[in-house]
Nucleic acid binder design. Structure first.
Length: 397
RNA sequence: GGGGGCGUGGUGUAGCUGGUUAACACGCCGGCCUGUCAAGCCGGAGAUCGCGGGUUCAAGUCCCGUCGCUCCCG
């Protein structure tokens, strides 16, 4: 973990790496898929990796200790939410987000760009930044690219995301192009602010660039080139699964993944279902985050290698079996589907916890299997078989 | 014994002075959820209105009887 041999040969601005290094340890001969190791000052992340979403400084219903048990190696936190509550300066005063929430592993923070998009009813975006109203109390705030970096730095984030503009799936081409230009301009400002912070304080988060471009192949190519040229420590694809036809998710991934540098991490933002992760790993992506395993757990949808289980369904009322035979999670080790169904229908918080632990364990197990398959040189077969099981089953086999 | 109130889908209730396919909540069944305003959202099944009779073009909605529950007075 102390070794710091940056492999960002393609990235000219290696001074922006913020203590990160990334090694590719295995490649699939038939696709861009690779297995790697992302080293951060707070620990190593074997890739492909899934990042549970801890918006408010907590992965809902579970503790950091339990997250470790599910296989979590890196978390996602959120600038927008923590800035509004309790306030980044409060967290900074208490020793930073890691100490505040009791998680000592790496944290990647989202910039708030997605909230500008998803809370669109209460915002106005200009070149200066995004002016928005708090969803908590209606107060007015201005989030600039510089501010986004400052907030993430004071949280103590290990990997910060630049402020970007994420147009909705149905956006007109012109709007997508405008969002790209703005995202590029903001990316430069974010890099500059990170550089100056590093000079002032001696430390600043590593920064990943974000590629926009909507559903247009030429725009994705153009923006990938623009962002890659700026020398980020890693690269993300944003603006995916924001309302466009689902089939395009994989097309965008297949096109854009290989356009990003091989020597640094590739992050597909906000994805996805297990099927999506498998395909995107096949397109060369290393990092993912998504609310799906945690939110769906609380809403009663549980993931297994045979497909999805709706735990509230009548079919599970008297089912003594675990969700998935052999799953190492707390829920599968100790409880029946019938009991989990009962907890869900009774709205017991234990149900939310067990369901969340199961879904995260399943997600981490999935990407770990992908990693092992890549290292073993059998990713193509693994991918085909795993997808086939998901497509065939309903989880109740 | 006398007087009053109530009986509407599984449960609890709406249904104004009678007028199209009886509403709501919860429950039940099913689905959705992709950089979390989300322990959330959407949909479906389910009552002919205690029972019998009457008035009326038309009754859950008025009248009579009856059964059940309930309150008050003896």
């Amino acid at each position: 973990m102390t070794e710091s041999a940056p492999l960002l040969r393609q990235a000219p601005g290696s001074s922006h790496q913020g203590g990160l290094s990334f090694q590719v340890e295995g490649r699939d001969p038939g696709s861009p898929a690779r297995a790697g190791r992302l080293q951060t000052p707070r620990g190593t992340v074997p890739t492909p990796a899934f990042m549970p979403v801890g918006t408010y400084g907590a992965v809902k219903s579970v503790t950091p200790h339990e997250l470790r048990e599910t296989g979590t190696s890196i978390l996602l936190g959120n600038t927008y939410h923590l800035y509004l509550r309790p306030g980044h300066e409060v967290i900074e005063g208490l020793g930073g987000l890691h100490r505040f929430m009791g998680w000592d592993g790496p944290i990647l923070t989202d910039s708030g760009g997605f909230q500008i998009f998803s809370l669109s009813a209460m915002r106005a975006v200009t070149d200066q930044g995004a002016e928005f109203r708090s969803h908590l109390d209606g107060s007015l705030h201005l989030l600039t690219p510089e501010k986004a970096i400052e907030v993430q730095a004071s949280l103590g984030s290990d990997i910060a995301m630049p402020l970007d503009e994420c147009p909705p799936g149905g956006a007109a081409r012109g709007a997508v192009e405008a969002a790209m230009r703005r995202t590029t301009a903001w990316a430069r400002r974010c890099l500059e602010r990170a550089r100056s912070l590093r000079e002032q304080r001696g430390a600043a988060p590593a920064l990943f660039g974000i590629v926009q471009g909507g559903v247009h192949a030429d725009l994705r190519r153009e923006h990938a080139a623009a962002i890659v040229s700026l020398g980020f420590a890693g690269h993300a694809v944003g603006g995916v699964s924001v309302g466009e036809p689902p089939a395009l998710i994989h097309e965008i991934g297949a096109l854009t993944g290989p356009l990003l540098p091989e020597g640094s991490p590739r992050y597909m933002m906000g994805l996805g279902r297990p099927q999506d992760l498998i395909r995107l790993i096949g397109s060369g992506f290393d990092l993912f985050d998504c609310v799906m395993p945690t939110r769906n757990a609380r809403n009663g949808t549980l993931f297994t290698s045979g497909g999805v289980i709706h735990i509230k369904n009548e079919a599970h009322r008297r089912d003594p079996r675990p969700l998935e035979e052999g799953c190492p999670c707390q829920a599968c080790r100790g409880y029946s589907r019938a009991y989990l169904r009962h907890l869900f229908l009774s709205r017991e918080i234990l149900g939310h916890r067990l369901n969340t632990l199961h879904n995260l364990t399943h997600y981490h197990g999935l990407v770990r299997s992908a990693r092992e398959a890549i290292v073993a040189g059998r990713f193509a077969a693994w991918s085909r078989q795993t997808l086939a099981r998901l497509d065939a089953g309903d989880g109740d086999d």
